[in-house]
Write a protein that binds this DNA or RNA. Sequence first.
DNA 1: TTCGTCATTGACCGAATCGGTTAATACCAT
DNA 2: ATGGTATTAACCGATTCGGTCAATGACGAA
Lengths: 205, 205
Amino acid sequence: MNEKFFDLPQEKQERIINAGFRVFSRNSYKKSPVQQIADEAGISKSLLFFYFKNKKELFLFLMKKVEEITTQALLASKCYEASNIFDMMYLGLVAKVGIMKDYPDITNFSVKAYYDDDPDIRDDVRKIVQPYTKLETNRSIPPLDPKDFKEGIDLRLMYRDMYLASEGYIWQMSQTSVIDVKKMMQEYKEMIEFWRELYARKEDK
Amino acid sequence: MNEKFFDLPQEKQERIINAGFRVFSRNSYKKSPVQQIADEAGISKSLLFFYFKNKKELFLFLMKKVEEITTQALLASKCYEASNIFDMMYLGLVAKVGIMKDYPDITNFSVKAYYDDDPDIRDDVRKIVQPYTKLETNRSIPPLDPKDFKEGIDLRLMYRDMYLASEGYIWQMSQTSVIDVKKMMQEYKEMIEFWRELYARKEDK
DNA sequence: TTCGTCATTGACCGAATCGGTTAATACCAT
DNA sequence: ATGGTATTAACCGATTCGGTCAATGACGAA
């Protein structure tokens, strides 16, 4: 790709990236017209082909961009440093919501890209995504210390409950065109505190 | 449309319907080729145009089919007759999973169709979907009697928790190509019993 | 076998759309 | 004006699209 792309003002870069996410998330790779991406980005198709030598290069660039954006946001959220599962989940989802505010179609794009089996891109997508899926720590249960929680609680099911509800949250958000971030955040915060009250062992010093 | 479609053997009808769900769920209306639907259904494009006079008629037929399938399955599941919220949610999701076993792409199809804003179909889709969204009872909280649940539980948040987790379940299922119905059902059953133990007031006669 | 009926298809059409190229233009500092 | 850079309109050959229609196949009645 043409390195001059990175010299563009940040706002223009993001406009192009978001247009790519949007168009590729609504159609398969093959059926996504470069023309439409250019239109939604407010530039000409020719210019897009000036920065990216062809459709495939643009697509794979967007794939790598997803990884970059998410890992960076999760790191910045400090969710991995949280002292308990509730704070960890909250910080994690706040980070994801923040991402979706800036890149509304990033979730649908990555899901779509992952399951696209077009021979033109399939292998390259696997190659990019592989290291990312290996550290998929969310689905499997993280190490939890029983003494942090009320007695008689099945920690496996507790975590599954919270994980699935969080997934449901993100899914709902990804389906609505206009995202009310403030409200979503507030509602999830409520949810977390509800769980904390429900599951966590009360501290008595 | 040609009424002879309904004279076809059930299996062939479903093959065509599923092919339609599948193709339309992977691309926008305009970018979904009728040819591909015919291929996946194992018939010729000409025959498809014999039963449905054009692409739009086929699409709108599928839209109505979604409504028919879901309302019928939910009614048959007797989830509305359940005596408590836990059984109700369980029966409701069992019904939805059953649908997805027969029509794996129905969820993605209906979501996609709902948000497609192609002027060719937009207005007709709204017209079909409108009465269906009005009785959207799941998102809003159903009437719950506090004396059925443990004290101190915020019933609003309790329901939101269960609703979101169920959504997360369905979303996960709709994303995986091969659906292990048995396992999914079993896991959700576990989840329900976990909630019942957690939320429901113990009966002492 | 022959005929007639009806389901089904291959071949075809004009129009539209695709990814990609290129020569020309707009813009701007000197 | 000049030169260089960012950006585009116009264009290309190839492909794909929705839709049509004459031809084919299957099959039972005669």
